[in-house]
Design a protein around this nucleic acid. Structure first.
Lengths: 270, 270
DNA sequence: TTGCTCCTCACGTCACGTGAGGTGGC
DNA sequence: TTGCTCCTCACGTCACGTGAGGTGGC
């Protein structure tokens, strides 16, 4: 018979751990002294302890281990636990790899100096949005082409929707390539489940849930192209790729553009 | 101003999380109502929240994040945190990969049926041991060659050491290849720091700490070769390799071999 | 009597999730 | 008055680590 300290040394665990396993019924001492409460272990129990440690090293939880060290447990039970563990670990590894890449992307950007701005990019699921939207055509990309389209169409759409007594949620904008370098600009407001009267100009459209890379942008949209380019670099550096047209969510829309707050989103997948 | 619920929805976090961040001083509401205690957030704070979420996604702890969202923090502080995170994550990934391989090794063994026995193999550091040892020569490998050497030399060594009034710890055996298929068998007892009188036959030797794969074996040593072979398969399957001669630690040495308890160890590295 | 090993609580870890029980404004 | 949102505790999570305060055998 071995005292708890010696048994713990042999098994490379702490006495506290052995007491814990005793409490949980995972590994109970061969003998407990009535008077003193001292725990004593038989050398035979070293194999039991080794088994518990081995299972723990595989990442099983203690309640799972307890269910395995009982008598007459079928092999299939162990296999089941191991298979689900395997899946969880594979998931965990790929998540950690994404993290690692995110960190490296940030470090590269930071160490590269002023060349790359520091963006806080977050992966999230965005939507769904049910929007009342209109579509306009811009003669090309960039702020100088798109800005005027905004200023021309947004107020008209807003008037139209407010005339319908709709409560307007966030303003959502997305783009579509058209012929001859032109750009279709879709402008809409989230109307949730309110009934909307559609017109020639105004349609209701459902934007589904998508996984996006997201950044919050303050102020004028003038520099926004650079932002999008930085995001795309981030997306590629972290092992993702773009799967759809980018969106802008106007959380605060203001005649004074410098006060605007916009969320830039790019749909992505791994 | 937004209520906590709406702000939480925008930022894809829970209200509880926002309260938590408020308590920690990571992100305090722009305004708190005196009478009701209601928290209100400004839309501007969305960017702050995004930053906290981004940093959390990199695996930083909240106290680290708090130290980053304060005013006037030098970039170098962030870089330091990210670098240490990077190292930790790289470590974690490689550990998880070892786990994954261990699980797959066990599943293969289990699904392969009776072909492979179920071993509880554990990676640990073994030693150090200071042993009083003698060396004998066996005519070859295998139980039929080594068993007789044991029975001939162990009692003599034991008598010698006991005559020196030494307290004997665990009995340690290790092997060394010699010429013409012969095997040097080193037999010793752990004597810790007791003074030992060395003789022609008995030397004191220091076995250093080594990383080993370890298994507990019950009973006769007859089938032990198979065990070692299984261990070597396990070692290779989990991405390790053998770096030294195997050892046996006799935790219970008994004239009746079926009562013996032995730890089989093979030094390994990744 | 002094060390040594062991004992039993019981709090702390980390970032919230999850009730319980209650209040203020439409 | 009924919902709705919000509030403040406070316990639970997971596998022990780490004291605090005390006891039994050499």
């Amino acid at each position: 018979m071995l005292g708890i300290g010696e048994f713990a040394r042999l098994g490379q665990v702490s006495p506290r751990t052995l007491r814990h396993y005793g409490e949980l019924g995972i590994l109970v001492p061969a003998h407990v002294d009535d008077a003193s409460g001292y725990r004593f272990y038989a050398i035979d129990q070293l194999a039991q302890l080794q088994r518990v440690v081995a299972l723990r090293n595989l990442g099983l939880r203690l309640d799972e281990i307890r269910s395995l060290v009982a008598d007459g447990v079928p092999e299939e039970h162990l296999r089941g636990l191991l298979r689900s563990r395997r899946a969880e670990i594979a998931d965990a590894i790929s998540q950690e790899q994404v993290r690692l890449r995110q960190i490296e992307a940030r470090l590269d950007a930071s160490e590269g100096g002023a060349g790359m701005e520091q963006l806080d990019v977050v992966l999230k699921r965005s939507g769904p949005h049910r929007v009342a939207a209109t579509t306009a055509t811009a003669p090309g990309h960039g702020y100088e082409n798109i800005g005027p389209v905004f200023r021309a169409h947004l107020p008209i759409l807003a008037d139209e929707l407010l005339a319908q007594r709709l409560r307007l949620g966030v303003c959502v904008v997305w783009y579509e390539e058209a012929a001859r370098d032109e750009l279709l600009v879709h402008l809409g407001w989230d109307v949730e489940d309110q009934p909307v009267t559609e017109t020639d100009a105004v349609r209701v459209e459902d934007l589904h849930v998508v996984e996006v890379a997201s950044t919050i942008h303050h102020g004028s949209m003038e520099g926004v192209t650079t932002r999008f380019e930085s995001m795309i670099r981030w997306i590629e550096a972290t092992g993702h790729h773009v799967v759809g047209p980018s969106r802008e969510l106007y959380w605060r829309l203001d005649p004074d553009e410098s006060r605007q707050i916009t969320e830039l989103q790019i749909p992505v997948a791994r």
